Simulated scan of single mutants.
Amino acid sequence: MIAFLEKELFQESFPTYNDLQGMYFSQYKRMASGYLKKIYEQDRDAFNQKFADFLEKEIDENREGYLESLLHFTINNRKKLPIIIVDNTDEFTLDFKVQIFQLCNSYRRKVKLCMLMFPVTDKSAWSFSKTDIFTIHQSKSFFLPTPSPREVFRKRIEFLNKTLVTAETAKRREYLSSKGIRIELKDISKFAQVLEDIFVENNFTAKTLGELTNYNIRAIMSLSKRIITSPVMRIEDLITSYLTTEPISYAKFIDALLRGDCTGQAKLDTFN
């Protein structure tokens, strides 16, 4: 959280001395007018060294206090609203999730103008309901609809196409089919269209995976990897689907789902 805030708030991705002096200006004034007043009036360099030592100790040793100061600086100096989003906690234990929830809530209460978003599944929400966490901390619960698996696949494939670097797509990729036919693909981004045909354009694919996993997105993505790396999905089948725009058959899809990627390491390396 500290690293992210520093990157977003400061041009150099870390605060300068002047930034830190502004963040801790109340302490600076307290030291200058209080127990270090004589040093401040008689030897400004010595006072600045004392203040620098204070900053070093505060930043290196009091990390929680430093984070609180960054949040206050975000609100009061930059006039921005901190929003803490804690996602993907469902794989962890209930105790861990409770501790993270309490930690973020403590900062939200300290700086006052702060929003905490803590997405959880129904299972985690049910676990939380058996604790006092919702009564201790003021919060509002919103129930969001389950995202469509087809839309999740579409977003993933769009991201894949955008992040394929030019150097990678410019390479010649050759594959040897089971019949000894050498196939060359010069544009991997277009070949990614095959994945879209399987998981987006075919209505039954995303629907079947969603129903099998109770629309758990993490499980859906795991099953999709199991299918695409399965030996049932041969390279020539995928290329045929790409060239003819004919979708993969439902029978082949189910066969790949059942068999999995037991011998699919080479296929996985191919798509990596």
Score class of each variant (00 low, 15 high):
Tyr24Trp: 07
Tyr24Phe: 15
Phe25Asp: 09
Ser26Val: 12
Ser26Trp: 08
Lys29Gln: 14
Lys29Gly: 02
Lys29Glu: 15
Arg30Cys: 14
Arg30Asn: 14
Met31Tyr: 15
Tyr35Leu: 03
Leu36Gln: 14
Lys37Glu: 14
Lys38Tyr: 13
Lys38Glu: 15
Ile39Thr: 13
Tyr40Ile: 02
Tyr40Cys: 05
Glu41His: 10
Gln42Gly: 05
Gln42Val: 06
Asp43Pro: 12
Asp45Lys: 15
Ala46Asn: 10
Gln49Glu: 14
Gln49Phe: 12
Phe51Trp: 02
Phe51Ala: 03
Phe51Pro: 13
Phe51Glu: 07
Ala52Tyr: 11
Ala52Pro: 13
Asp53Pro: 07
Phe54Ile: 13
Leu55Lys: 05
Glu56Phe: 15
Ile59Trp: 10
Asp60Tyr: 15
Glu61Lys: 14
Asn62His: 09
Asn62Gly: 06
Arg63Gly: 05
Tyr66Asn: 04
Leu67Cys: 00
Leu67Asp: 05
Glu68Gln: 13
Ser69Cys: 11
Leu70Cys: 07
Leu71Gly: 06
Leu71Pro: 11
Leu71Thr: 07
Phe73Arg: 07
Thr74Pro: 10
Thr74Trp: 04
Ile75Arg: 02
Asn77Trp: 07
Arg78Asp: 02
Lys79Leu: 10
Lys79Asn: 13
Lys79Ala: 10
Lys80Arg: 14
Lys80Asp: 11
Lys80Gly: 06
Ile85Thr: 02
Ile85Leu: 08
Ile85Gln: 03
Ile85Met: 02
Thr89Ser: 05
Glu91Tyr: 13
Phe92Lys: 12
Phe92Ala: 13
Thr93Leu: 08
Leu94Arg: 04
Asp95Arg: 10
Asp95Ile: 02
Asp95Pro: 02
Ile100Gly: 00
Ile100Glu: 04
Phe101Asn: 03
Phe101Ser: 03
Gln102Ser: 15
Cys104Asp: 08
Ser106Asn: 10
Ser106Val: 03
Tyr107Cys: 04
Arg108Thr: 01
Arg108Asp: 01
Lys110Val: 05
Val111Asn: 02
Lys112Gln: 10
Lys112Tyr: 03
Leu113Ala: 03
Cys114Glu: 09
Met117Ala: 02
Pro119Tyr: 00
Val120Tyr: 00
